[in-house]
């Protein structure tokens, strides 16, 4: 039972982290119709900037400054990079972000080197919070969870309650109408792109020290973030939340399952013929397949609901 609670906690942390990354991406996709392939690179940038800032002024200022810096960089990229490309259509935009991902991926090791940087969890949070079934639960994990939740609430409130949020939501679906009403839609785009990048940066700040800050970190998370966004439905914030938590929980739970597939399925009431042609597959233990699980879920969701879990348009 306690073991189960730990698994759920881990799944939540991972899921919420994925959400922080994908929330920015899904907003950008929803609003501008452009899949930002460099999104995970802003996550990496956040971690590296937080490391550099924290060596000078400490972790807490870095927690605020690094995402802001990433947001500013994102806004500049949108204003001077993406906007001129915009009139050439979505393919050009996609290629631009594709190239940008490589540029950031090469600049980072030029500045900080190819080895992981010693970006550490602050000493205050580097303590066990409580012990469950003989396992210490780090305080920093709870902190990660709280930050993610606070960010979700703030984002939701900003979109639902403020005047700016109203304009953003309107520009999501009817950009021309919003422009007719006298709002500067390109500026709203820049704002949303910057905010999306800042969120990715924030995720980098709090994940960079929990895992490692190294030049490969963008690549390793990039694919899974797209899986989340597509699965949740392009442009749907709550869809991204559901998909992130689902992927986080299912992946963590499957790591803990040392059962072969046929036994796991029979626990769900499905019996399969072990001797059949798929013999090897049924005998494969679930934990070995854990890394494939997010993509398997993605395919399943797309096959049954092409617009994603909570999406309103088709992918």
């Amino acid at each position: 039972m306690e073991q189960g609670l730990l698994v759920v906690l881990n799944g939540l942390v991972y899921g919420l982290l994925l959400f922080m990354l994908s929330s920015g991406l899904t907003l950008i996709v929803g609003m501008m119709g452009v899949l930002n392939l460099a999104h995970a690179s802003f996550y990496m940038l956040g971690a590296y900037l937080a490391y550099s800032i924290s060596t000078v002024v400490g972790f807490w200022p870095a927690l605020v400054l690094a995402p802001l810096a990433v947001g500013v960089i994102g806004a500049l990229v949108e204003r001077y990079g993406l906007r001129p490309v915009h009139r050439h259509g979505h393919v050009a935009e996609l290629l631009f972000t594709f190239g940008l991902a490589f540029v950031i991926g090469e600049i980072v090791p030029l500045i900080w080197g190819r080895l992981p940087v010693p970006y550490r969890v602050p000493a205050v949070l580097d303590v066990p919070l409580f012990a469950l079934a003989g396992t210490a639960y780090p305080a920093y994990r709870l902190f990660m969870m709280l930050i993610s939740l606070a960010m979700f609430c703030a984002l939701f409130a900003a979109l639902a309650k403020t005047r700016l949020g109203l304009v953003v939501r309107a520009a999501l679906t009817h950009p021309d109408m919003v422009a007719m009403l006298g709002h500067d839609v390109p500026r709203v785009f820049t704002l949303v792109f910057g905010a999306g990048c800042a969120l990715a940066g924030l995720a980098g700040v709090i994940a960079g020290n929990a895992f490692t800050t190294e030049p490969g970190m963008a690549r390793s998370l990039g694919a899974i973030v797209f899986a989340v966004v597509v699965m949740g439905g392009l442009g749907s914030l709550s869809g991204a939340l559901v998909a992130s938590l689902l992927i986080g929980l299912v992946q963590t739970v499957s790591i803990g399952l040392d059962l072969p597939f046929y036994k796991a399925l029979s626990a769900l009431g499905i019996t399969v013929d072990v001797g059949g042609r798929l013999h090897d597959l049924w005998l494969l233990s679930v934990n070995r397949a854990a890394p494939v699980v997010p993509y398997l879920l993605l395919v399943l969701v797309l096959a049954t609901r092409p617009r994603g879990l909570l999406g309103s348009r088709s992918a």
Partner: peptide, 12 residues
Amino acid sequence: KDFTPYIQKMQA
């Protein structure tokens, strides 16, 4: 990226 679930299995 996160080996915590595996460590928990070892502890269990």
